[in-house]
Amino acid sequence: MKKIPVYILLTASAIVMIYPLLWLVGASFKSNDEIFSSAWFMPGNFDFSVYERAWRTVTAYSMGHYFVNTFKIIVPKIFFALVSSTLVAYGFARFDFPLKKLLYAVFMGTMFMPAISVIMPTYLMWSKTGLLDTYIPLTVPALFATEGTFVFMLIQFIKRIPKEYDEAGRIDGCNSLQVLVYILVPCIRPVLVSISVFTFLWTMNDFLNPLIMISSVEKYPLSLILRLSADSTGNGYEQNKILAMSVIGLIPSITVFAIAQKKFIGGITAGGLSS
């Protein structure tokens, strides 16, 4: 009974937190007048045709096209991040080698690097290779374990696996790589799931990188087509259309979050991950 004020407080804040999202979904079905005249999220009558128009976007391509583009970035990026982070974490967690201390200190330092301060020189570097306006600048860096938090999470996790597992494998004739693939990878699967989910969500959210690297509308990922539509619809007309496009753009992230949420909320703090 003593906790009733706590529940009231929590429930009130939860409503404040979630209401904007409910409003977004509701408002996408409303007419432009209704969006700005009623605070209640449920629309007076549902106008489904707006989604048909939203799906067609403001360009010659449909939302489906931009989904495919986004996945063309996400899928290789997840694969690259999984492989490279696992290899590097394994090296740091299980072996002793020359310069290890120095390299580990450098690694910890890179986790605190503000990405925006290297983005312009990185852009200039890619522009010299002629690979701008392809997905390579967006995906290939993942091949080099550039997401330090993933490596850190994996190191913490691998260190908790008893070394006897590795030894048992070696006695059965595994080499170092086989120990990793056959013995450790099955153990670290939960972390690998978290890495995939975070790579997915972060790539969906990424805006500055594609904004800089991708210039043709045909190759835009979802975030850029949303920006283009928001700019070109402007204030005054078709506002429900841009809201509907936003809802469509959020569906993949919400779906992935819903599927994975149990698994990864617990595992997030292992590496102190945040968005």
Binding site: S84, L87, V88, Y90, G91, F92, R94, F95, D96, F97, P98, L99, K100, L103, V106, F107, T110, M113, V118, T122, P141, L143, F144, A145, T146, V151, S176
Partner: peptide, 19 residues
């Protein structure tokens, strides 16, 4: 003694190239 170093090569290259 260099086996571990081999495994962290992706990080070393990534650090040099992208940082």
């Amino acid at each position: 003694k260099y086996t571990g170093l081999m495994f962290v090569i992706p990080f070393i290259l990534g650090f040099l190239l992208f940082m």
